Amino acid sequence: MRSRGGVLAAASGVVLILAGVAGCTDPPASRSTTLPSATERSKVSQFALSNKEALDAAVVAFERYVELANQIGAAGGAEPERLYEALTPELAEESIANFQRMQRDGLRLEGSSTVRGVRLVQQNADLVQVYACLQAGSTRLIDRTGADVTTADRQIETPLVVNLQPGDSGTLLISQSEQWPWPDNDIC
């Protein structure tokens, strides 16, 4: 049975639930993940984003998560608490445990993954769901001796279904991610 977090990446043979990695750049200034606050939502009868706004917010939120996971993985799992910025508390705790295991085992990631092909599935006041492709082709798992311990049979591209929900600060947080279950897909 898959955990609630699903599989976001087998970046290098170690399955890191929501511990995939991506580029370390700031999100484009034209996009914002900030959503109306709970107070603002309660003032209107229906909280709604356009499909474009929902997709843009989801892309920025997912890229932010991947950026954080990339930094934490490169640091050998150090300071995983930063994931609370991008994940719901339950999912953050699960991912933090994986990074702590990585740190304990003396592993670190080299390289970075990317996110591409993000498509909106559905959105409402409580959920934005997207399909996305996580590409981990340039990542390698390195042990404490400096040896590359990346497994040869890892997935280079992982198609995902990602759920995001508004957090207390009004930004989208990843609440669930699962590998797309059908092998014939055009996500990646």
Rank of each mutant, 00 (worst) to 15 (best):
A132I: 05
Q155D: 11
T114N: 11
L109R: 04
D143K: 08
V21E: 08
Y84G: 01
A74W: 08
N51Q: 14
M1N: 07
A132S: 13
D143G: 06
D168H: 04
E178R: 07
V60G: 03
C133N: 05
G117W: 05
D26S: 10
V7P: 03
Q165F: 08
P36Y: 10
E40V: 13
P36Q: 13
A22N: 15
E85L: 07
G170K: 09
Q122E: 15
M1Y: 02
S30H: 12
L35N: 04
W182P: 01
A132Q: 07
K52T: 15
Q71F: 00
A92H: 06
F62N: 13
C133H: 03
E81M: 00
E178D: 10
L55P: 03
R108P: 02
A132T: 09
S175A: 14
E85N: 06
S30K: 13
C24P: 00
Q123K: 06
G23V: 13
V44H: 10
M102H: 02
G137C: 05
G111N: 03
V118G: 01
S112W: 02
I142Y: 02
L68R: 10
S12P: 05
G13N: 09
V15F: 06
S30Q: 13
Q135S: 12
R64D: 12
P166I: 14
E40R: 13
L120A: 13
G137D: 06
F62M: 11
T151L: 04
A86P: 06
A86H: 07
S138D: 15
G23M: 10
C24W: 09
M1S: 12
D56G: 05
V44G: 14
T34R: 12
Q165M: 15
G146R: 01
L8E: 13
C133M: 04
D186I: 00
I156S: 12
S37K: 10
R101F: 10
A19N: 12
E93V: 01
Q176T: 12
V60L: 08
S138V: 07
V149Y: 01
T158K: 01
Q179R: 14
S30P: 00
V161D: 12
Y131G: 07
L83Q: 02
A48Q: 12
Q71M: 05
R154G: 03
T158I: 08
Q176G: 09
S45G: 11
S177D: 05
P183H: 07
E81Q: 10
E81S: 08
E90W: 10
